[in-house]
Amino acid sequence: MSRESDVEAQQSHGSSACSQPHGSVTQSQGSSSQSQGISSSSTSTMPNSSQSSHSSSGTLSSLETVSTQELYSIPEDQEPEDQEPEEPTPAPWARLWALQDGFANLECVNDNYWFGRDKSCEYCFDEPLLKRTDKYRTYSKKHFRIFREVGPKNSYIAYIEDHSGNGTFVNTELVGKGKRRPLNNNSEIALSLSRNKVFVFFDLTVDDQSVYPKALRDEYIMSKTLGSGACGEVKLAFERKTCKKVAIKIISKRKFAIGSAREADPALNVETEIEILKKLNHPCIIKIKNFFDAEDYYIVLELMEGGELFDKVVGNKRLKEATCKLYFYQMLLAVQYLHENGIIHRDLKPENVLLSSQEEDCLIKITDFGHSKILGETSLMRTLCGTPTYLAPEVLVSVGTAGYNRAVDCWSLGVILFICLSGYPPFSEHRTQVSLKDQITSGKYNFIPEVWAEVSEKALDLVKKLLVVDPKARFTTEEALRHPWLQDEDMKRKFQDLLSEENESTALPQVL
């Protein structure tokens, strides 16, 4: 008996699950189920560990084997000379395990699969056993689809999209007709009724959600790893209520002995410091949205989908001078704002400069500016000194954290500008005749005249004003913003236009 009217009423009120309206889709043409990776026989039982391990490696599972009696060998002398080797079968990115008779397991190899009674669906509900069930008529011709799209860092995100009359449910929550939600590992998919569980979705590319604290899981769906560094790992996640993407940084307390840091400095109150950081608001710094204190720290951040500045300059790639100017102007505005709010970044580098898009002209935002507030000064500097390429001379020669101030950030900005303009770092371990530390503390950077011949004198002058060993003589952010190279009204107008595109209400910060 159909429950279409009941569920449609529920759909009209929406769902609290991570779902959002989605535009129309072009329906895929039908194809045989076997060619799409559906096993030839149905099963109602969950797999054992041996079955799972075989399939996850990209080899055929026991459900897909063919009797050897149906095959015969071709003698080598009868092999056609022009026969080309077969292409290897792509490894599946996800697996659906059937929970009921009449449904088959599915190895997801393609990027898009339609499910329903219509014969054009890649996964067609046409098993005779299924057709005899009382629920068969409640399934729509095109009930739902599972697909994946390219996300940040060229990774993939799996989604389920509801197109049914009676509802598609993920972990008992209604997706909603015309809406989608991301699928995470071990999600249970039910059709027409929330208790009519048909599939379990296994994402073969992500970790299980159960490793994360419950308070975090209640608000966010964790997904793929976006990156990792000395101070922690960053994962893509989704807000459950809105389906908006965020980035979540995970900082290990054990790695940084944060408990010991608190004992050594009783004034170090991470929760208080995070609340201060959350109040920071500038178009060129990453917004801190939320914070969870569990076995590790979880910092929920605004997501930038254009990648890191590092990706644009790695491998001796240089940027156009006009692009360097647009990016560097924004970096200076961001660091100036942090300094005005009493925050020294201490870890400025291309990896911590994020881009809003893949376009050459785009907004940038500074991230990882609050680590000293979370990890403690000593722990952070011990970590950073392991990779000193961007560290100021006074940091390398000081004991502990004494003896330096916000000028350290201006040195790091000078190193970043040098790399963007030239395509190579000013200080490098590859210069074996002088140690990296000695290069930095003496201010002897690697200047290649033929490379810098293409760079304007004004740009080079600003680099020199920032890479000054004496912090008292080094340019401040205010002085850098007043430098002739940055007195470019076309560049500032472009920045204002980019801000307006992102948010019509965002105004250009005042600069002296």
Rank of each mutant, 00 (worst) to 15 (best):
T272I: 04
A230V: 14
L183S: 02
E161P: 05
P182F: 10
V206T: 02
G102Q: 12
V211I: 13
D208W: 02
L216G: 11
S140T: 07
L99I: 09
G102W: 13
L130R: 12
Q69P: 04
Y72S: 08
K135D: 04
T89N: 08
L216F: 15
D126F: 13
D218T: 08
F169R: 01
G14D: 03
S67T: 04
S192M: 02
Y220F: 01
T225K: 15
N110A: 04
I248Q: 11
S35H: 03
P213F: 13
T26W: 07
S155C: 11
K131M: 07
I74Y: 15
Q29S: 07
D82E: 09
S260L: 15
K255L: 02
T225R: 08
G58V: 07
L204I: 15
I248N: 01
E86M: 10
V234E: 04
I258D: 02
P92H: 15
F115K: 01
S33G: 10
G178P: 14
G178K: 02
V66N: 04
M222L: 13
D162Q: 05
N171E: 12
E64F: 02
V246N: 07
K255M: 07
Q51V: 08
R262V: 04
E70P: 13
Q78T: 03
G23M: 14
N196E: 02
I157D: 07
S5H: 06
S15A: 09
L193M: 02
K224M: 00
I248G: 01
F238Q: 09
A17K: 06
E122T: 08
S2W: 10
V109E: 12
V198G: 11
H22Q: 09
V175L: 05
G232S: 05
V175E: 00
A267H: 15
G58M: 03
G116H: 01
A91I: 03
A9V: 09
T272A: 06
K244G: 06
G227M: 00
K235Q: 10
A215G: 01
K141A: 13
Q69S: 05
T242D: 06
K142I: 12
R181C: 04
S61V: 03
T272V: 03
T89F: 11
Y159S: 07
T138G: 05
P88S: 09
S16D: 05
R240M: 08
V170Y: 11
V246A: 03
N110V: 10
I38Q: 12
Y72K: 11
K131I: 11
A158L: 01
S35R: 10
M46N: 06
S42W: 10
K177M: 07
R148L: 06
S15Q: 13
S140P: 00
P152T: 10
G102T: 14
D126P: 06
S2R: 13
Y136A: 05
R217K: 09
I157E: 01
